[in-house]
Design a protein around this nucleic acid. Structure first.
Lengths: 349, 349
DNA sequence: ATGAAAGCGCTAACAG
DNA sequence: CTGTTAGCGCTTTCAT
């Protein structure tokens, strides 16, 4: 087949100059109705599609933004992506999707390639702080972080969920139910010091202390990324402390692990163990009993992040992080602690 | 900040011609070791990133493929996307993600815009048959369908799951358990004739007939896309026929609806009702009891589809659809039909 | 081994 | 109102 028609072909066929064609198609500048018609017809007849490549080279805008997430199969990331897609569409932008799998090296490579593509901006849930972000900025590319934001890069705007408020609310809810020995399952290096825990862990500790409850070291455990580690950590936590009456999982993968382990151990939920988790993914409602979860507005976050990209550089730099509220969705997985811990501990294997 | 460095800047700084810089960076053509060093250093010092725009204009390849799915938040689509991403990475291609939301008009618009972007190829779960696909082909863009393939477009290669074999295996499994009145919950226009059901429904009917079981009209119901319709259809099916002992949901959203409605109706699973569904999404294992599901290799499908794009046009046209096997993952949601339908029907409201 | 020059398809001055 | 022209950044002959 013959090569796709170019603006020149259209111009020739319509008997006009290329500039006129450009004017008609981009709707800029004055054109007489007659020529307009002729051009449009020629374009239609040739099935002409302007090339984004040519235009981009000239205008220095590609009309596409990069989106860097950890795993697109993660429901939170997927929801985030949906938000970005929705906003990008209203802006007429395309979305280049990339998965970092949480690997900083890979993230660096991705950002590098996005710069080559001359994307108009990058939206990312950063895997790590690193010079590649600064280098993207230097290349004149707008960057906005979502969900997390390394404190080393305050010049990069961010859209976050109010995890601190959410975790606090959840802890207060559990304490209000009468729980005194509440466990926490989070992510991170198990060997790292307490201060190294993320916002969720830190807030958990603070909230507990504020309520006058003791933060027991072995009630806070961290899993490394990955299903196996999550299961192992959950098993350790549940078996180590049969007197624990409630647990907060800091993410849906961790929540999944707790549910699975609790079932394996024949614990009744919530009679023997109350379970709550961060991120209200769809299966929370399908569980039996349905899981109480802290909903974070992933879609909105993606939408907002994309909007921030559009702001002019000056306003962007100056901006404080956008912090979106969370909501504790109460279902059946949490209840008052059982009065019969003896029974419970007899059931553990 | 000053504009990003171009190949010219690098050439000037290294004291060579632009052609030499191009040779060094693309690793093509002979270059003396000394100049090579100089060029590399100059490029590094200027933080030079070649522009994909300029290169693409010249080479007529953008290094990106379009991926058109229904909803990125659908676990099946997300898994598919992950496969595409994985393969694209090995090929050094970028992925432009688009969501059609199952709307043909939107799909047409998306394809049009992808053509403008001059993507090297398009991978899609088509919402509908339509001239936009032929027009993409005419524009010289490779297209490959995944998950479904309109029969009106046999010239477009496809990567599919063997739904027919999978549904048949599932029906046989249920029948083998002793079920005689098996329900089917699918998607599509409820008013359309029986022949209009998709492969899954058609296969369901055929398989039943082959087993000598009767296909009762009101045991096959269709829901329109959307959560509410799924719930309504599931409720209708379960309430209308209390004597039904097993149900096959033709998708995870439908499975979700059945699980929710069964719980609402206080049906015990699998004693009162056995449930199986197509698509082994993550929550299937978290349900209580865990759901028996027909696993389809979404990730592989995405990977393979991306591979097919890379094939030369001639081989691509000639190809028969790639059909990947499914696997019935048996969990606890299916069992022999209860001997006490009276009890069961007393429980329905 | 290396440089000069001709575009790739488009937009944006600038002339007319 | 409309045509001509000069690039945008890169690759690729074709000379040298």
């Amino acid at each position: 087949m013959s090569r796709a028609a170019t603006i020149k072909d259209v111009a020739r066929r319509a008997g006009v100059g290329v500039a006129t064609v450009s004017r008609v198609l981009s709707g800029s500048g004055p054109v007489s109705e007659a020529t307009r018609e002729r051009v449009l017809r020629a374009a239609r007849e040739l099935e002409y599609r302007p090339s984004a490549l040519g235009r981009g080279l000239k205008t220095r805008r590609t009309g596409s933004v990069g989106l860097v997430v950890g795993e697109i199969t993660d429901p939170f990331c997927a929801e985030l992506a949906a938000g970005v897609l929705a906003c990008a569409r209203t802006l007429g932008e395309h979305v280049l999707l990339e998965a970092s799998h949480g690997d900083p090296g890979r993230e660096a490579e991705i950002v590098d390639r996005l710069v080559e593509q001359r994307v108009d901006g990058v939206i990312a849930t950063p895997a790590a702080e690193g010079d590649w972000w600064r280098s993207a900025l230097r290349a004149g590319i707008a960057v906005v972080f979502v969900d997390r934001a390394p404190k080393e890069l305050p010049q990069i705007p961010a859209v976050l969920a109010d995890d601190a408020a959410g975790v606090r609310a959840t802890v207060e809810y559990l304490a209000g139910l009468g729980h005194r020995r509440i466990g926490f399952l989070g992510t991170g290096d198990p060997a790292a010091p307490a201060e190294a825990g993320g916002v969720r862990e830190t807030t958990f500790r603070t909230a507990l202390a504020e309520l006058g409850l003791q933060v027991e070291a072995d009630l806070v455990v961290r899993a490394r990324p990955g299903r196996d580690s999550a299961l192992a950590a959950a098993a350790a936590l549940l078996q180590r402390r049969p007197d624990m009456t409630a647990v907060l999982a800091a993410g849906h993968l961790l929540g999944e692990a707790v549910v699975l382990v609790a079932r394996e151990l024949d614990l009744r939920v919530p009679a023997d163990l109350s379970i709550a988790m961060v991120d209200d993914v769809s299966w929370a409602e399908l569980c039996d009993p349905p899981l109480t979860a802290l909903a974070r507005p992933a879609r909105d976050m993606g939408y907002r992040a994309c909007e921030v990209l559009r702001r002019d550089p000056a306003r962007r730099e100056r901006a404080r992080p956008v912090v979106l509220p969370t909501e504790l969705v109460i279902r059946g997985s949490c209840g008052p602690p059982s009065r019969t811990p003896a029974v419970r501990s007899a059931r553990t294997r």
